[in-house]
């Protein structure tokens, strides 16, 4: 279904878009299976209505939002972002949503809130991958509060001007374009504000391979493969890889968040 009144955004990249077919048929969404073609085949099992998102923890106004409220909470924008997967491939995706900060401001985080934790829905009956012990279900991701408040961080409800397809994290997901894709939690049911760094799924599964920050960084390799280059999806069998950019090309906007940090240590 088409989303009404989607504004363009100056924060969008001008790069050519990855096709709708590739964006919706090449997915890492282990809740629906570990093969990249599994989510497109299995995601229809997930019922995305009714849907609520509980916003809780260290906030002055904890609330449960209905998905229809979230769709109207702020003006919808199209944000064309690069997406860089930790597996060294990338896409250019026209997301639809609005800054997560709009929601965060409504619930008024307390001074003690330092982190935000995003929890994916836990429904093994609708998500066959959750019946296998691949990751610690439900999937949990997290950001530092200043990262979550950054204007680039998106509460995402759509793709290509339409309602978000299930395999891309319907009905509501997070998009953090300067971090590896796994940091952007999908099919979110809970947003919790905490004082301490959340225990996130991939970080728990392999802490030496998937750091909490997971900023795109061509100079810090994954222990098992290089992060210096990436393959742009849709460019075909004979295309060359391209150089990966620091913070996925968003360094001007986000580098200051990590000014005093050793990014080799906080990878």
């Amino acid at each position: 279904a088409k989303l009404a009144e989607v504004r363009k955004s100056p924060l969008s990249t001008m790069e050519p878009l990855t096709s709708y077919k590739d964006i919706t048929h090449y997915n890492n969404f282990y809740e629906f299976g570990t093969d990249k073609s599994d989510p497109a085949q299995q995601a229809h099992l997930l019922r995305t209505r009714p849907w609520t998102v509980a916003v809780e923890g260290l906030v002055r106004r904890p609330r449960v939002y209905d998905i229809d409220e979230l769709l109207k909470l702020a003006p919808l924008e199209e944000r064309i972002y690069r997406l860089r997967c930790v597996e060294a491939w990338s896409m250019v995706v026209p997301w639809v949503g609005y800054p997560l900060s709009a929601l965060i401001r409504q619930v008024e985080p307390l001074g003690s809130a330092k982190f935000v934790e995003f929890t994916t829905v836990l429904r093994p009956s609708e998500m066959p991958g959750q019946r296998l012990p691949i990751l610690a279900w439900p999937y949990v991701e997290g950001l530092r509060l200043d990262e979550a408040m950054h204007p680039l961080t998106l509460l995402c409800l759509g793709l290509y001007g339409e309602v978000l397809p299930n395999q891309n994290g319907a009905p509501v997901r997070i998009v953090v374009p300067w971090k590896y894709g796994f940091k952007s939690g999908k099919s979110i049911v809970k947003i919790r504000f905490t004082e301490f760094q959340p225990r996130t799924s991939w970080n728990l599964a392999a802490p030496h391979e998937y750091g909490f920050y997971a900023n795109v960084n061509p100079t810090v390799d994954h222990p098992r493969w290089s992060q210096a280059k990436e393959r742009r999806i849709g460019e075909g069998l004979f295309a060359r890889k391209r150089d990966t950019l620091m913070f996925n090309g968003y360094a001007d906007q986000v580098a200051h968040l990590y000014a005093d940090m050793d990014l080799r240590k906080h990878f």
Partner: peptide
């Protein structure tokens, strides 16, 4: 598959 657009979104990885 190569001649029939069947190698998927990431043909290099597929091969």
């Amino acid at each position: 598959l190569g001649f029939n657009d069947g190698l998927g979104a990431n043909p290099v990885e597929f091969i």
